[in-house]
């Protein structure tokens, strides 16, 4: 079975969600819940590291869109890092690079958050 996993690590004010496996309409609730938990804790600076994500469908992309407005209103952001070419293509087809900060790696995302403080 191809699964999906999500782990979280907090680096000072920034929370990093690390997604792995297959993000589709079946697994998307877990990603949504993880973001919801961050908002409940008033953590709005979020990096989503996709280094180990093998697959994403529009169900997964919809979650980024569903949360970004609220997070930016609170002064935060979702920065997305370490996209494989396959995953990047899906983001690109839907025009995400114009709306989201897509970073080469997690460190770049963290640096951007830190330099913006």
């Amino acid at each position: 079975m191809s699964g999906f996993d999500i782990s979280r690590s907090d680096k000072n004010e920034v929370s990093v969600l690390h997604l792995s496996g297959f993000l589709d309409a079946h697994t998307v609730n877990r990603f949504e819940n993880a973001l919801q938990d961050l908002l409940k804790e008033d953590r709005y600076k979020i990096t989503v590291n996709l280094k180990d994500l093998d697959y994403i469908s529009s169900a997964g992309l919809g979650v980024f869109m569903g949360f970004i407005e609220e997070i930016r209103e609170k002064g935060g952001d979702i920065k997305i890092s370490n996209l494989s070419p396959k995953v990047y293509k899906v983001f690109d087809l839907l025009g995400f690079p114009a709306l989201f900060d897509i970073c080469e790696d997690e460190q770049e995302a963290l640096n951007k958050f830190n330099s913006a403080q």
Partner: peptide, 24 residues
């Protein structure tokens, strides 16, 4: 075709799948 900025502002999520199907 979805207008992503309007989508983000309305927090709607539908329609992306059909756009992807047509693109792919």
């Amino acid at each position: 075709k979805p207008d992503l900025k309007a989508y983000v502002q309305s927090s709607k999520r539908g329609g992306l799948g059909i756009h992807l199907m047509r693109s792919l």
